[in-house]
Every structure is written in C-alpha cells, then in structure tokens.
Amino acid sequence: MVEILIDIGISVALLLSIVTLAAFLTFVERRLLGFWQDRLGPNRVGWEGSLQVVADMIKIFFKQDWTPSFVEPVIFVLAPAIVLVTVLLAFAVLPLTPGIGIAGHLNIGVLFFLGMTSLTVYGVVLAGWASNSKFALIGGMRAAAQMISYEVFMGLALIGVVMQSGSFDLVKIVEAQRHLWFVVPQFFGFIMFLIAGIAEAHRLPFDLPEGENELGAGFHTEYSSMKFGMFFVGEYASIVLISSITVILFFGGWNGPFLPPIFWFMLKISLFIGFFILLRAALPRPRYDQLMSYGWKLMLPLSIINVAVTGALILSVPA
C-alpha cells in the first residue's frame, strides 16, 4: 500500500515538474534568444523576468476560448490533448535516477518511447484536419510527412545503442554506460538521433509544420487560448523529452562523479535544452524538399550503414 502511494506521489510530482519546466522553458527560451540577438528578453515581471511565465499563464487562461464555426468540434478539442498526453506519457519510461522513474525496469522502454512520439503525429494531423482551413491542413500534412520520415531513421539510429547494451530497457542502457558513454562508440548514431529528435519535436530548423512565413502558424492556425497553450506546452515538453532521452541513451543518464545522480541528469538535459534553443537562434529553415531529401537520401542510408558497421564490429570483436 505504501509503495503504491509512493509510486503515485512520484508520478504526480514528475508530471507537475515536467509541465512546470515546460512552461518555464518558454521564458528561458525567450531570454536566451534575446541574449543571442544582443537583446535582453523579457526582464520586467519579477526578478529578471522570472515571473513572466505566471503573467503569460494568466493572460492565456483569460483569453477567449474560441472554437470557429467551421471546425469539427470534437476532434478540434481533442487534438491538443493528444499532443500533450502522448508527450507526457513518453516520460513514463524515462529513468531519471536509479530511484526516480515511473516504469522502472520496462523491457520495451525504447520501443514505448518511439511509439509515443509516433502517436504525437495524430494530434498534429487531426488538429490540421479538424481546423477545416487550408493553412492548418497543409501544416498538418507537412507534420505527418516529416515526422514519419524522420521516425524511420530515429529508430534505426537507436539500434546501435540497443545492440551495444543488449537491451531495450532504458535503465540497463544507462547502467551499461557506467564506464563509457555511448556517444563515443555511437557518435554517428547520436548525431542522427539528435537530428531526428529535433524534427520529432518540430523545433527550428525543422519546424516546417508551423512555417509562419507561408502557413500563418501551420497546424495551430485556428487555435486560441488554452487549446493553443496545450500545443505550446506540448512542444516544450517534447524538447525536455528529446533532451532527456538523448542524455539517457548517449550521455550516460544519471552517471557522474561526486554529485547526486539527479543533479547530473538535470545538468545534462539543461545543456541539451540550451542547445535546442541555440539551434533556433542560429539556423534558418530548410526548404521542404530539402528536409525530405535529407531524411530519405542521406540520413536513412547513413543510419543503416551505422547499424551494419556496429553489428559487424560487435560480432568480430570477442566480448
């Protein structure tokens, strides 16, 4: 009984901290983008702008929750929830430290993560389709094509790690990295996974589903108030998710000397979150055909070669 209560407590605390962190990232991102553009960013609300998130939340809750007359109402309301829920569910398999984690030893951890990121596509596509507007529909179609193409080699890029650790269990993968992080033997796998992860979170430079120059705001053109807020929080939660999974698979998860494991984990994921924001500050979007040809003509063959070479080395070098 007590164990169940502790588990529930951990789950609720994790959920709340992820949503809070995702909301706080909206502030961190604007601040960092400001510094990288020689501006200050929002610094008025609270100490150095730290309460900006609260102000934004109040604003977004009090906005009119407008459902346009031409949309499919049920799916229109459901779509943002799907995006947020699938992203949050993927956190269930992440082991933050040896003790903190919801699923613990789950022998399909990597597959569950891949499955949940695939399901996010449904939210985006349904949002685009239910909006009954051409920009939203084009954005949703772009999102579907992009995320499905990039998922293909995202899975293949992970296979190298799975082969080396011999398990789909994320806890075992982290424990296998006690002496050497997988980023060293699986460097190309890491690069490809990171690129696929950026595309999965549809962050810049791969945010073509939102491409505001040509699509207004892409799949969430017709959304307002908290329904838009859920897409927004979902996007930042998926940044946290991709950062965490990269740290777990390639950068040794909680492993680190002297300091407590949770500190190492938080430090590593904040570096990756910073890197994601830096990407947004620095790089322009590719064209859509460029995005597709990178995915299918460059990244997919490379990831297959990576899998083949890793397998050959594992077989030829006696354990």
Partner: peptide, 18 residues
C-alpha cells in the same frame, strides 16, 4: 551550420544593445 552555431553562441557574452 556549426560555424553559425558557434558565432551565435558567442553573442551570449556580448553587451546587449537594449
């Protein structure tokens, strides 16, 4: 791309214009 990322990162240490 990597060069752009690096130069953008260095702007963290520049004086802001604001």
């Amino acid at each position: 791309s990597l060069r752009t990322l690096w130069f953008t990162f260095l702007h963290l240490f520049h004086k802001t214009e604001t």
